[in-house]
């Protein structure tokens, strides 16, 4: 017993604090709520907005992360790398309402009034940018740890064979970063799926236009439609589990190889 003391403490706490809330949510599912949610066009719009915006945000995050990976490999002593590395931790500490407000001020009416009455705010682009802002650091960190695993001598040899740092990164490092690229995309996508605060601050909560699953659930709770909120939440749980399972399976396959 004393040898398993950590497991004995961990198991009930994990079940109570992590699994139980999810089970409690799923047990509140009702057929009436499911039926009403599934015929609600705004629900399907929010599903579409969530998936499309998260995919774009993750793709953008991955592209920028590839750039960060380059700095991590070749330019660790530069000012821009040090700032970029520091900023990777920022979204963890920063309230996402603050991130949303920052985006609103940067790309809203005052700075980007020329693109429309509200600038980029309250458009699907705003939703994408908000998701990108909070998810990019995950992709960047994943790419950086992938770069760490590349044997430095492989890059050194490529350089002596005539590769510039850019060529060595694109031809030698990137093809060996498949796992990190995949994980970075899936993690950024998963994080984007779950974003609420930054999205609602900058993208708003316009049904059919900028409403995402997280804000749909929020709206339904506010309207007192708990059964519909529970159905949408259960959908979110399934979607999230599906995404993290893909990641888990891929990691398992990679570990076997």
């Amino acid at each position: 017993m004393s040898r398993n003391i950590i497991a004995v403490i961990f198991t009930p706490l994990f079940l109570l604090l992590v699994i139980y809330p999810l089970v409690a949510l799923l047990f509140r599912l009702e057929s009436n709520g499911i039926a009403r949610t599934l015929v609600d066009p705004f629900f399907w719009d929010s599903v579409k907005n969530t998936i499309v915006a998260a995919a774009f945000a993750a793709a953008m995050g991955l592209l920028l992360a590839i750039g960060f990976g380059y700095l991590h490999l070749f330019q660790k002593n530069t000012f821009i790398y040090k700032i970029a590395n520091l900023m990777n931790d920022l979204p963890i500490a920063l309230p996402h309402t603050v991130a949303g407000l920052a985006l609103l001020l940067a790309f809203g009416r005052n700075a980007f009034g020329f693109v429309g009455n509200t600038g980029l705010a309250f458009t699907i682009i705003a939703v994408i940018l908000a998701m990108f802002f909070v998810s990019y650091p995950l992709a960047a960190r994943t790419l950086a740890s992938g770069v760490e695993k590349i044997e430095k001598e492989v890059i050194d040899v490529a350089r002596t064979l005539g590769d510039t740092p850019t060529k060595a990164y694109l031809r030698i490092a990137l093809p060996n970063l498949g796992e990190a690229l995949f994980s970075g995309f899936v993690l950024a996508f998963s994080r984007s799926l779950s974003e609420f605060a930054a999205v609602i601050m900058f993208g708003g909560n316009v049904p059919g236009k900028t409403q995402v699953l997280a804000s749909y659930v929020f709206t339904k709770v506010e309207e007192g439609e708990l059964e519909m909120a529970v159905t949408a939440s259960a959908f979110c749980v399934v979607l999230s589990l599906l995404t993290v399972s893909i990641l888990g399976l891929r990691r398992l396959r990679y570990a076997k190889n």
């Binding site: 001598e153 492989v154 050194d156 040899v157 002596t160 005539g162 510039t164 030698i172 060996n176």
Partner: peptide
Amino acid sequence: LDPEERKIGYVPQHPALFNH
């Protein structure tokens, strides 16, 4: 000069082959 400009052949301790 940078390594790519030196025209030097370098064989490191581990073969460091490009695995892909």
